[in-house]
Design a binder for these strands. Sequence first.
RNA 1: GCGCCUGUAGCUCAACUGGAUAGAGCAUCAGUCUACGGAACUGAGGGUUAGAGGUUCGAAUCCUCUCAGGCGCGCCA
Length: 556
Amino acid sequence: MFSETRQQLKNLISDSLSIFQGITIPNIIIDIPAETQHGEFSCNIALQLSRQLKKNPLIIAKEVLPVLQDLLNQSPLNKEIGKIEIKAPGFINFYLSPEGFYHVLYDVFEQKDRYGCSNFGDGQKFCLEFVSANPTGPLTVAHGRQAAVGDVLVNILKAVGFNAQREYYVNDEGNQINILGRSIKARALQILGSDITFPEDGYQGDYIRDMAKVFMGQHQIQSLDDLLKLQDDAFRKFGVQYLMDLIQKDLEDFGVHFDIWSYQSVIANPQSIEALLADLKNKGYVYEAEGAWWFKSTLWSDDKDRVVRKSDGQYTYLTPDMVYHKDKFARGFSRIVNILGPDHHGYIPRIKAAAGALGYKTDDLDVLIVQLATIFRDGVEVSMSTRRGEFITLREVMDEVGRDAARFFFLMRQASAHLDFDLALAKKQNAENPVYYIQYAHARICSIIRKAYDELHLTPKQNDFRSLHAPEELDLMRKIGLYPDILVSCAHFIEPFALVRYLQEMAAAFHKFYDSCRVLDENKDISSERLGLIEAACVVLGNGLRLLGVSQPQKM
RNA sequence: GCGCCUGUAGCUCAACUGGAUAGAGCAUCAGUCUACGGAACUGAGGGUUAGAGGUUCGAAUCCUCUCAGGCGCGCCA
């Protein structure tokens, strides 16, 4: 709603600037001021023009005002904008009329579950690849955060009109998988009494031992001889299958559903890899040196060229990944974004260079780095090392604090910022815990509406709010009206954090209103209008929580 | 050494991507309920936005340098 109004104001202002001949009109910006005393919308155009016109911005604003007011009077926007004021040093501020505020509520009741949705994305195909954890162990909290961020992002992208998909790239081949196979085999050997030493680079977690037992059961292995008859491939295949099942179960329980699972072994098969390398060689993007094959990634401003085929004939990680991205591009996405952990940030120029070599723009592929979450238990940091098998899994966190709190906490900071995750706080069921603060607001509203209906036979009004004009009531409406813009902003910056913050503010605005305005009043008109207002608030809280994948309790 | 990121209240973080008096939560202190869910609300204290220059109507935000911290830099994944 506000985005429409802002666009209309922009047009009016643009028209009103015709009084200045021969100037270049800068981009007109309609801001939403931090302070409500500056109105609902604000424009800095007079400040921007002051240099060009060589005039005091205040004077420019005063010259524009009558023209603008005149245009507004002839516009349908007139009944929603109460007044226009000029404030030093030259801002033009717009104040909504009560009708302008009520318009927000009409929108909510017209769109209900769809309130907040828009056509910002214009149906563009958007591929978000995230988690993509190697099947070498259970998902860690780092993956958990990436899963939460990615999942919510896709929810938001869909809400604002993108045709967005969740994709998981399974690295089911390569060095890591070889190590996995060797680790399982070594544990199985040990179980059967062999005194071999565990591989130096093997995965030391206890889960490998469990896997070895399951493996032996499946293959009916009783003796060392039985085991040694098996090909190494059997261990790898089993390991990948077992761990992918585990990972999929974890994600399922975390509420994350991927649309596409892409397997490296399928997409980046030997033929497609050879074909790609031949093609890049033809184009002069791959050359041989020192017995290895190098990708000329420096052509796209990478620091150095990268090996794609080692002198021993093996491919590096990058090579199948290039094939995979070629496959992704070929599927016709207008935007491709990969979420990676911070340890991979050096990889970005490389993979962007790959996009360039494949004939796309390096900007057609974006990489979003989601920083790590540090887990605190009783104020002490929990250390992490996958290799040594010391890590907290996503599963443990989910079991300990619940899915709602886990998802919410992972989103409580910007994805680009480190996150401290306090298990004790996430478990707390009181005001300190922001999840409960928001859910409580939702439940509280549901409870009031129930009571109004059961005991007073009152239902929320949806089309008339003329009695509502207290500051707390208008604040709540203003907040509700902001919601669609918040989603667009999240999509634009590919960052779900603003939604989390918004919902906290939304809940606060409701609690404030509740404390100063009695909903179930003697006056039935006021009651049903306020019921309408809080129902609208409830719709927004519910819609927002749903996008976060957090439950929206009717009672707690 | 080179590259990237970060530095805002005691703590954890915001600030609509250059706007108006830099805001929240926690913590501290002081308050608010005989009525709708107190899991709530109100108020106070707390800041030279690490520092120094620069750009302009205007800087936490952009540029340069300094300081402090983190990460990356293998024919690794």
